[in-house]
Amino acid sequence: MLYYLFYKQLIAYAHFFNIFYYITFRAMAAAATGFLLSMVFSHYFIPFLKKKQIGQTIREDGPKRHLQKAGTPTIGGVIIWFGFIISVLLWARLDVNWVWIILFTAISFAFIGFLDDFLKIKRGKGNGLKARTKFYLQIFFASVVSVLIFVVYSRYSNCPGCFYMPFFKNLVFNMGLFYILFSIFVIVGASNAVNLTDGLDGLATGPSLTTIFTLAIFAYVSGNLVLATYLRLPYVFGSGEVTVVLSALFGSCLAFLWYNCYPAEVFMGDTGSLGLGAIFGVIAIIVKEEVVLVIAGGIFVIETISVILQVASFKTTGERIFKMAPIHHHFELKNWPESKVIIRFWIMSILLSLVALTALKLR
């Protein structure tokens, strides 16, 4: 919005407004705006949640220390989406299809999460949407988004179904229409992976910030023809604006972490985690860096794999591999303090993001 007001309309009157043309400036402004809006909103929204007794229900089979968190305000994901959406509308170019696709993804998956959180609170037993219903809704919205991405790509590229392997110069697979099914898998998988990780104070928010930062760099490079060509990355028309969108998300998540860090004053709930994961999946598909997402979001992947292995092992052998899954609970039950589990997972996430960034040069 501000791009059209200041750059398109006022550039003729003052050259200063040319600054609104640059992605780097708008990205920094979007991050600051998202942060400030979410901080201000939190100041009023958290007391509102407390007043209405919209609190978290705690599973009884988990670590006993978590029982003291019962009643902590939840649905805090609204804080993230408030700052994020307004910031994107203010600073991103709204004539770029990717911006609207990402906004649709955030709103649709946040809606699924909100329904789940609302039912948990209403019933008071931690029973939200049925797993099958939630999964079908995720599949539906992921299918819509995947088709939209494929259609938009078809306008700008002669290979909308191409899958690029990082670390290799010319290793590309043309999946054709099967790329739509692959995209659905990535979006739904990423959404649930972040959701599984959101079990400790700030545990999902920290790795989300490092993942956002990594994807933002790839989006910026992919949207610059000179840089993309030099670094042998697939050039994606308009993906520079995705950097602005991710910056807005970074600022909003940073503000949320202010209140979500240990000991948490508010939880994001499925309202936040499902939308965050879905956005990561969509952006990875847009910039053709699905493998980079697996690396940068390695914490989410590890958490998901721990659940899969635990369930598979128990069903086939009757034995559990971990004391409890997801794996962060395993370390808690090994008497690691919660703050230590969180910070060590954050450290691992930073290291994984650095590894992912090497894919920029190692081609």
Rank of each mutant, 00 (worst) to 15 (best):
L200T: 01
L200N: 02
D201E: 01
G202N: 08
L203C: 06
L203Y: 06
A204P: 03
A204Y: 10
A204S: 15
A204K: 13
T205C: 11
T205S: 15
G206Q: 11
G206K: 07
G206I: 15
G206P: 00
P207W: 10
P207T: 08
P207C: 13
S208G: 11
S208T: 15
S208L: 11
L209N: 11
T210E: 12
T210G: 09
T211F: 09
T211R: 09
T211I: 12
T211C: 13
T211L: 14
T211W: 10
I212H: 09
I212K: 11
F213W: 11
F213H: 05
F213Y: 14
T214H: 08
T214N: 07
T214C: 13
T214E: 06
L215Q: 11
A216H: 09
A216G: 07
F218T: 04
F218S: 07
A219H: 07
A219I: 03
Y220G: 03
Y220H: 11
Y220M: 10
V221N: 11
V221F: 15
V221K: 13
V221I: 15
V221P: 09
V221C: 14
V221D: 11
S222H: 08
G223A: 04
G223H: 03
G223E: 05
N224A: 01
N224K: 02
N224G: 01
L227A: 14
L227Q: 14
L227E: 13
L227C: 05
A228H: 05
A228T: 03
A228K: 07
T229H: 15
T229S: 15
Y230V: 02
Y230M: 13
L231H: 05
L231T: 02
R232E: 14
P234S: 02
Y235I: 02
V236Y: 00
F237H: 13
G238K: 07
G238L: 11
G238V: 04
S239I: 00
S239R: 00
S239A: 02
S239C: 01
S239N: 00
G240V: 00
G240I: 00
V242Y: 05
V242N: 05
V242R: 07
T243I: 04
T243C: 14
V244E: 09
V245D: 01
V245T: 01
V245M: 02
L246F: 10
L246M: 14
S247P: 01
A248N: 04
A248V: 03
A248Q: 03
A248S: 15
L249E: 04
L249Q: 09
L249D: 05
L249G: 03
F250H: 10
F250C: 10
G251V: 08
G251N: 11
S252V: 08
S252I: 08
C253S: 11
C253A: 08
A255D: 05
A255K: 06
A255G: 04
A255V: 04
A255N: 03
F256Q: 07
F256N: 07
L257Q: 08
L257T: 09
